[in-house]
């Protein structure tokens, strides 16, 4: 695009609509939203287990020589991170985030270290199956291992 810059005011339609009579106090809206989100905790836990199984299948395919699966691994672990974080599954979210780091690192040209990915996928599968029953001590030991692997394999990721 060429041409001069323009700075101009725009109508805040959202503000007009949201200030119409009625509505709810933000605190009440937040409480209602938290309740609605909580209502899908069960189905989300099942989806997290399914995603862990998808990661297992993708890693197996990758080990067979198909590095194009790195994009799918990244996307699946990214989705896992988002869902796990919403429900306070911190350890699972951290493990998924770490796998995102690795997949992103490898898909940008670094030689792929499949054992490092396998270790992450195993950890994610375990944490997803345990759900909120994952004890703090057990989760910490899994995360410690994943952090060491990530630091060794992809220090700058």
């Amino acid at each position: 695009m060429t041409g001069p810059s323009r700075i101009f005011a725009v109508e805040n339609k959202l503000g007009q609509i949201a200030r119409e009579p009625g509505g709810r106090r933000p605190e009440d809206a937040i409480r209602a939203a938290e309740g609605r989100v909580e209502s899908v905790r069960g189905s989300s836990a099942k989806v997290l287990v399914e995603k862990a199984e998808q990661l297992t299948a993708l890693a197996a395919k990758g080990r067979g020589g198909d590095t194009s699966v790195l994009d799918a691994i990244y996307d699946t672990s990214n989705a896992t991170f988002g869902i796990a974080g919403t429900f306070g599954l911190g350890a699972l979210a951290e493990a998924a985030f770490s796998l995102c780091d690795l997949a992103d690192w490898f898909r940008n040209g670094e030689p792929v270290n499949w054992p490092a990915i396998d270790v992450h996928v195993d950890g994610i599968r375990l944490l997803a199956n345990l759900g909120d029953k994952a004890g703090a001590a057990g989760a910490d030991s899994i995360l410690d291992g994943l952090r060491r692997v990530r630091a060794r394999v992809a220090p700058a990721a």
């Binding site: 709810r24 809206a29 209602a32 609605r36 989100v37 899908v40 989806v47 989705a79 919403t86």
Partner: peptide
Amino acid sequence: DLQGLTIMAEMFAGFG
């Protein structure tokens, strides 16, 4: 992600 979209939709349903 379908489940991510479901969660988002539930949240906004709670917002009214």
